[in-house]
Simulated assay, not measured.
Amino acid sequence: MTTTSPRGRETQPGAIAAPRQTRSQQGLVRMLQAGRELIEASGNLDDLSINDIVERAGTSIGAFYRRFDNKDAFFDVLQDAAMEAGLEHVRETVERDPAWRSNDAGTLADAVISFYVVTFRRNRGLYHASLLRASQRKASWDVVKSANHEVLAMMVPRLVSALAQSRGIKADHDTTQALEFEVRATVQMILGMLVNSVLNDPGPLSLSSRQLRSWLQIRLRRCLGLADG
């Protein structure tokens, strides 16, 4: 029997065994943290060894295999945890950050870009490893896409509402649908650029470039008919 993870991935029940003791749980947390740091440094699951994980975490090979069937299962859990943490951060940001309560389309557009640039920089290695696995017909990138659908569901309606206000048009059903398509299509284009920069970094759109955020903010504003910030 299989189960479905929060990100829609089917997992085998043996993929991870729940630790029964506090010390065991602390070891699990350390292994996941060690794996996260190592995958960010390498960007390739093939370069990540179980020995490196347990050595960095201060645990053992036996402790690893008591919780995970293999390295792929470990990466699945690691990625799910990263996506859930990212979603929680978005929920808090959208609720508390003044930019997301401003109802100013330009401010919201800039906030969208800031979020994605920070997210891609923070997860550069994880995303690179996930994209490489996806090329081997493994569904790891589907997990990222699923998380992004939830992000867009939180962000897009706010930007659509502000965009309608900035254009002085009534946000009826047809108008809202048209604006939502416009926003989603433009954001998809921006995400394609960021994904490309993950796979082809360094390049003109290097994730490390100081110009990246402002350049993308201008592109998004112009695509949505907004004045440059």
Results as ranks from 00 to 15, higher is better:
M1T: 10
G8V: 07
G8D: 11
R9A: 09
R9V: 03
A15V: 00
A17I: 05
A18S: 05
A18I: 12
A18F: 13
Q21P: 00
R23M: 10
Q25C: 00
Q26V: 03
Q26F: 03
Q26W: 01
G27H: 08
R30T: 10
M31D: 04
L32V: 14
G35P: 01
E37Q: 15
L38G: 00
D46M: 04
D47S: 10
L48F: 05
S49E: 04
I50R: 10
D52A: 15
V54P: 02
R56V: 08
A57R: 06
G58Y: 14
T59F: 05
S60M: 12
S60N: 11
A63S: 15
R66D: 11
R67N: 14
D69M: 05
N70E: 05
D72R: 13
F74G: 01
L78Q: 10
M83V: 06
M83D: 04
E92G: 00
T93A: 06
T93D: 08
R96A: 13
R96K: 09
D97C: 06
A99E: 15
S102H: 09
N103K: 09
D104M: 03
G106I: 02
G106H: 09
T107M: 11
L108D: 07
A111R: 10
I113L: 11
I113M: 09
S114T: 11
V117W: 07
R121S: 04
Y127L: 10
A129M: 04
L131E: 06
L132K: 14
A134T: 03
A134H: 10
S135L: 08
K138Y: 12
A139C: 06
S140W: 03
K145T: 07
N148R: 13
E150G: 01
M154R: 14
L159K: 12
V160W: 07
L163R: 05
S166E: 14
R167P: 02
G168W: 13
G168P: 11
T175W: 02
T175N: 02
T176E: 15
A178W: 06
A178P: 04
E180P: 03
E180C: 08
E180F: 02
R184Q: 15
A185M: 08
T186P: 02
V187E: 04
G192Y: 11
G192V: 05
L194E: 03
L194T: 01
S197Y: 05
S197F: 07
V198P: 05
N200G: 00
N200V: 00
D201W: 04
P202T: 02
P202N: 01
P202E: 10
P204W: 01
P204N: 02
L205F: 14
L207P: 03
L212G: 03
Q217E: 14
I218G: 01
I218Y: 06
R221T: 01
R222P: 01
C223N: 14
C223S: 12
A227V: 06
D228Y: 08
G229L: 07
